[in-house]
Computed example of a mutant assay.
Amino acid sequence: MGIIRVENIRAYSYHGCLEEEAKIGSDYRVDIEVKADLTKSCASDKLADTVDYVHVNLIVKEEMAIRSELLEHVAKRIQDRILKEIPIVKRVKTAVSKINPPIGGDVEQVTIVLNKRRK
């Protein structure tokens, strides 16, 4: 088994419960960690035998473009697609952060983290 991380994927999106968030939007950061059997790709040196992080990045960008009220909902959609579209992935950890959230305080970011295993 091995781990592949795609870190600090940046997106500008319109998630949140407030009406202003739907209109103005804000900056987000997404970090993905997948666990997969990388034995074959270590030997073959072929992209087809591993987790294509370009594909992971595309999934994140597409799902971040779909508005949700909750970051948990976005993270779950990202995880579901990764597990559906990339069969080699056995586990995925997803962290979605809202940068400078509108919560009435000096807060750098709010992050939710979800873990999901293939059944």
Rank of each mutant, 00 (worst) to 15 (best):
M1Y: 13
M1H: 13
M1T: 06
G2Y: 15
G2N: 15
I4C: 03
R5Y: 14
N8A: 15
R10F: 10
R10L: 08
A11P: 13
S13A: 14
S13L: 09
C17F: 05
C17W: 02
E19M: 10
E19K: 06
E20G: 06
G25V: 07
D27H: 10
V34M: 06
V34D: 12
T39I: 06
K40S: 08
A43Y: 14
K46R: 09
A48I: 04
D49Q: 03
D49I: 08
D49E: 03
T50M: 09
V56D: 13
V56A: 11
V56R: 15
N57F: 14
L58Y: 12
V60A: 12
K61W: 08
E62V: 05
E63P: 11
A65S: 12
S68Q: 15
S68C: 13
E69D: 10
L70I: 09
E72W: 08
H73T: 10
K76H: 14
R77E: 15
I78Q: 07
Q79P: 00
P87I: 03
V89W: 04
R91A: 07
V92S: 00
V92I: 03
S97F: 01
I99S: 02
N100C: 00
N100V: 00
D106W: 04
I112R: 00
R118M: 05
K119V: 09
